[in-house]
């Protein structure tokens, strides 16, 4: 177990310079999620048009892993359909469980850098927070439309 497995350079880059950090107008799909065990928070907003995520932004408080993961996730899902995004959530969850996944399926290669988190069980929830917010946001959006 090496710290460098966890804190890869690209993760630190997203942590220092988060992509898509900020807020959108209120008509966007919005979801707020906490990690109640540690206090990390994410507020995720997405604009969904014709079943496609055309924009995503987040704000939040949390550690390097949770914020970097949120930055990567928002970058990755832009331009994807809701179904494609949910498949990514599943892929990411399996990667966090330590399963071998085809990382080429991620539309953003930076995400592969989070593979090492699986070796740090206490930090997996940090990495998955943004992805859970994505899943919840899309679910809420779906039930609203239905």
């Amino acid at each position: 177990m090496s710290l460098d497995d966890l804190y890869r350079r690209v993760i630190m880059d997203h942590y220092q310079k988060p992509r898509n950090k900020g807020k959108m107008e209120n008509d966007a799909v919005s979801v707020e999620l906490n990690n109640p065990t540690c206090g990390d928070k994410i507020y995720l907003q997405m604009r969904v048009e014709d079943g496609k995520i055309v924009d995503a932004k987040f704000t939040g408080e949390g550690c390097s892993i949770s914020m970097a993961s949120a930055s990567m996730m928002t970058e990755a899902v832009k331009g994807l359909t809701e179904d494609e995004s949910l498949k990514l959530v599943d892929l990411f969850s399996r990667m966090m469980l330590g399963e071998e996944v085809d990382v080429d399926q991620f539309p953003l290669e930076d995400i592969e850098a989070l593979t090492g988190v699986a070796k740090f069980p206490a930090r997996i929830k940090c990495a998955t927070l943004a992805w859970k917010a994505l899943e919840k946001g899309l679910g809420d959006n779906h039930s609203k439309e239905a």
Partner: peptide
């Protein structure tokens, strides 16, 4: 440095 990150380095 976020306290989670502090705790992870200390744990190592």
């Amino acid at each position: 440095v976020h306290p989670h990150d502090v705790a992870t380095v200390l744990d190592a």
